[in-house]
Design a protein around this nucleic acid. Structure first.
Length: 438
RNA sequence: GUGGGUAUAGCUUAGUUGGUUAAAGCGCCAGUUUGUGGCACUGGAGACCGUGGGUUCGAAUCCCAUUAUCCACCCCA
């Protein structure tokens, strides 16, 4: 296929027939966040490159090789956001939101960009839902964010998603950990790859997830974080577990979680799919990043957050056979025969739409039979047929497409009231049927 | 970044050891006489067989390259 008619690699078109699924998920996300007191924030798709290299971390894969970076016409280095947190923190600082009552709680749904090799559940452009919380240092806040994520999965009907938590300590205890790591890796100085050698001084923890076979083998026996965290961090971690236990949220402690972004401190967590089709899929992740606000020039402010990829959620839902209800079903299709009827039909649809009914009429000049077929195909609940006779007599037949029943309806000022009634009766029937089945 | 698979109508695929105008199902459009969909029947449109080279009298089929795509590893959402 030609380049012209081909979407760029790793991007995804969401077609009209599928968009309701995304809307369904996104509505639940934002609504659930609202129930927890998080309000939506919208920030730009692109930011100054510096923001991401400072927050995400110079030594991360994301910054080193996955960012879409370019110079704009004013010579500024600009980057399409690879994740949502940095922009949220920047906006929080820029608008002084920390001056309002704490905690500051925000949610967002944004497109993110990473130049990676695409595969199942991984795109170069992807939609991320996330929440961020500023000014809360207690483990209760960690529990709150984890609980929010957990209830999202529940509301979407997802099962087989397990929560894994870990603590990677604060800067104080991490210094000790770094020292131990350095000591350990220095023994293998001659074997480590070039990038890891440069990481050795700045961020030895990154060596733990180096891709090189040699480095990863060496890393296998490296000291573990949990053995080095300080008393405060340990207490925080224990408190978090207590909170999770209190609401019966199940979790496993996984000491291997070292998140790929540098800003994390203390609590880190991931939601991982245990389903056989989507096994290992990371359905969401997050943690605490108490040092980031200061790093970006603000006052020291405890902070934490969580993010998930909507595309991955949809993948998991589809593999579990979860049906997403269709919302945009045509209430009434108005078939017309002749020019006069077409004009009349146009006017009727306008009336119906003003009363929030989804109404359509023929706009490509098809015959009656073809119009009926079309009405059937789009799943119209009712079809009204208009011709010269109906216009003259001000009376028409309206067909219930499910039952096939034909009813008479007046085309005068009573039209809307009558349609409301007919429509409501059919809906009633459906609801009652569901009700008596249960 | 490393490794593996695949590329034929909008979609799912067939195409036998290379052999004339490249098939089928679904979908789309139109009909099956009068103004009512679903079912059935009939017909129609729609493919430079991913692209570029090569082998051959002859290539969708064999070879090479390239691109795209999918999957796994890694990492991540």
């Amino acid at each position: 296929m030609q380049l012209l008619t081909k979407a760029p690699r790793g991007t995804q078109d969401i077609l009209p027939k599928d968009s309701y699924k995304w809307q369904f998920i996104e509505n639940i996300m934002l609504n659930q966040a609202e129930l927890f007191g998080f309000s939506e924030i919208r920030t730009p798709v692109f930011e100054h490159t510096e923001l991401f290299s400072r927050s995400v971390g110079e030594d991360t894969d994301v910054v080193q090789k996955e960012m879409y970076t370019f110079n704009d016409k004013g010579g500024r280095s600009i980057t399409l956001r690879p994740e949502g947190t940095a922009g949220a923190v920047r906006a929080m600082l820029e608008h002084g939101l920390y001056n309002e009552s704490l905690p500051v709680k925000m949610s967002y749904i944004t497109l993110c960009y990473r130049y990676e090799k695409p595969q199942s559940g991984r795109w170069r452009e992807f939609t991320q839902f996330g929440v961020e919380m500023f000014g809360a240092s207690s483990a209760a806040a960690d529990a709150e964010v984890i609980c929010l994520a957990k209830t999202l999965f529940d509301r979407l009907g997802l099962s087989n998603i397990s929560l894994e938590i870990n603590s990677i300590g604060c800067p104080k205890c991490r210094a000790k950990y770094y020292e131990a790591l350095k000591k350990y890796f220095e023994g293998y100085k001659s074997e480590l790859c070039e990038t890891c050698l440069s990481r050795l001084d700045r961020n030895p923890m990154r060596i733990l997830d180096c891709k090189s076979l040699i480095c990863s083998k060496i890393a296998e026996n490296a000291p573990a974080v949990l053995d080095f965290i300080c008393a405060d961090c340990k207490e925080h971690f224990e408190k978090l577990k207590e909170y999770l236990d209190a609401v019966s949220i199940e979790y496993t402690v996984n000491p291997k979680i070292v998140r790929g972004l540098d800003y994390y401190t203390r609590t880190v967590f991931e939601f991982v799919s245990k389903d056989k089709n989507t096994l290992g899929l990371v359905c969401g992740g997050g943690g605490r990043y108490d040092g980031l606000v200061e790093e970006l020039g603000g006052k020291p402010t405890p902070a934490l957050g969580f993010g998930l990829g909507i595309g991955r959620i949809l993948l998991a839902m589809e593999s579990q056979g979860i049906e997403i209800p269709k919302t945009n079903v045509c209430d009434v299709y108005i078939a017309s025969i002749g020019d006069a009827a077409s004009l009349f039909a146009f006017n009727l649809t306008r009336l119906l739409r003003e009363s929030s009914f989804i109404a359509e009429y023929d706009t490509i000049g098809r015959g009656l039979k073809a119009q009926m077929k079309y009405a059937d195909k789009i799943g119209a609940k009712f079809t009204l047929v208009l011709g010269d006779d109906e216009i003259a007599s001000k009376k028409a037949k309206i067909k219930n497409m499910k039952t096939g029943d034909l009813l008479e309806i007046n085309l005068d000022k009573n039209f809307l009231t009558e349609f409301f009634k007919i429509h409501a009766e059919a809906e009633n029937e459906k609801i009652f049927k569901n009700f008596s089945q249960k």
